[in-house]
Computed example of a mutant assay.
Amino acid sequence: MTEPTVSESLAAARQRLAEALSAAGRPMADARLLAVSKTKPAAMIREAWHLGQRDFGENYVQEALNKQDELTDLEDIVWHFIGPLQSNKSREVAERFSWVHSVDRQKVARRLNDQRPASLDPLNICLQVNISTEASKSGMSLAELPALAEAVLSMPRLRLRGLMAIPAPSKGLEAQRAPLARLREALEELRERFPEAPLDTLSMGMSDDLEAAVMEGATLVRLGTAIFGARQRHE
C-alpha cells in the first residue's frame, strides 16, 4: 500500500480540522494547522507551501536553518520553533524564526529579546506549560506561569501570544480534554490579569488529540506525521 502524497495528507488534515471546528461550533478561521516538518526535507515543505500551507514547525535549530536557506524564495513562509531551546542556540532562533512555542524560563526569554534584530517585528512567544506535570517533559508549572508572563510582557522585542502544551497521552475524548481545559483556563486567567496583552493563541493538539484540542479552544494544531508521513530518526 503506497503512502499518501503530501497533497492527499494535507487535504485530509484540513478536512479533519474543519470537521473538528464544526463539531465544536467554532468558525473555520478560528484555528489553523502548524505543519511540523522536523526531519523532513525542504522539498516536502516547498510542496506543502505550494498547496497553501504557510506555518511550519521545526524542533532542531541547525536542521531548520539549512531548510530555511534552501527556501529563501518562499517569502511569506512562517517558521515556528517548537522544540526545547538551549541558550547557546537562542541567537539563531531569535534571528530566523517568527514564533517560539517553547519558552519556559526567563533566561531564555531574555536572550531571545536581546538577540531579536530591531529590523524585525517582535518575536511571537508561547510559554510552554508542563500541563501533565511529567518529569520527562519541558515546560513550567501553572504556578510559575504568571511571573514568567509578566517578565516576557516587559520585553520589547517579544510579543507574548499565548500558551503551548504537550499533554501526556490518554485515551478517550474526555480524558484528553481535561489537561487541555486546564491550559485554556490558564490562558483565560492571564487575559484577565494582563488585559492589554495580545493573548490569542493556544498551541495544542496533535494527531491523537486534535478533536479534544479544538473542543478546548486550540488555535494552532501541530500535525507532523499526518501531513508528511512517518518521521526519520533524527541523528
Rank of each mutant, 00 (worst) to 15 (best):
Q106Y: 08
K107Y: 00
K107F: 00
V108P: 02
V108M: 11
V108Y: 01
R111C: 07
R111S: 08
R111Y: 05
L112H: 10
D114M: 09
Q115D: 01
Q115N: 05
R116F: 02
A118R: 07
S119F: 01
L120F: 07
L120V: 03
D121F: 03
D121M: 10
D121I: 02
P122M: 12
L123V: 06
L123K: 04
I125G: 03
L127M: 09
L127N: 06
V129Y: 03
N130V: 12
N130A: 10
I131N: 02
S132W: 09
S132A: 13
E134Y: 12
E134R: 11
A135C: 08
A135S: 15
A135R: 12
K137L: 05
K137Q: 08
S138M: 05
S138T: 14
S138Q: 12
G139I: 11
G139Y: 01
G139F: 05
M140P: 04
L142D: 03
A143Q: 14
A143C: 01
L145H: 00
L148W: 00
A149E: 03
A149S: 14
E150H: 13
E150C: 04
E150P: 00
E150T: 12
V152W: 02
V152C: 09
L153Q: 13
L153G: 05
S154H: 11
M155L: 15
P156Q: 11
R157V: 09
R157K: 13
L158E: 03
L158N: 02
L158S: 04
L160I: 08
G162D: 02
L163Q: 04
A165Q: 02
A165H: 04
I166D: 02
P167I: 10
A168W: 00
A168H: 05
P169C: 00
K171P: 01
K171S: 15
K171Q: 14
G172I: 13
L173I: 13
E174N: 13
A175K: 15
L180G: 13
L180N: 10
L180Y: 06
A181S: 13
L183M: 12
R184A: 14
R184Q: 13
R184H: 02
E185W: 02
L187G: 03
L187T: 06
L187V: 06
E189M: 12
R191Q: 15
E192D: 14
E192N: 12
R193L: 15
R193H: 06
F194S: 03
P195F: 01
P195E: 01
E196R: 14
A197C: 10
P198A: 11
P198T: 10
D200V: 12
D200I: 10
T201A: 02
T201Q: 12
L202M: 08
S203G: 06
S203A: 13
M204R: 12
G205D: 11
G205N: 12
G205Q: 08
M206P: 07
S207T: 15
D209Y: 03
D209C: 07
L210W: 07
E211S: 14
A212L: 11
V214P: 04
V214K: 00
M215W: 06
M215A: 15
E216I: 04
G217Y: 03
G217D: 05
A218T: 14
A218D: 12
T219H: 02
L220T: 04
L220W: 12
R222Y: 03
R222C: 10
R222H: 08
R222P: 01
G224L: 11
G224W: 09
T225D: 04
F228C: 11
F228R: 05
G229I: 06
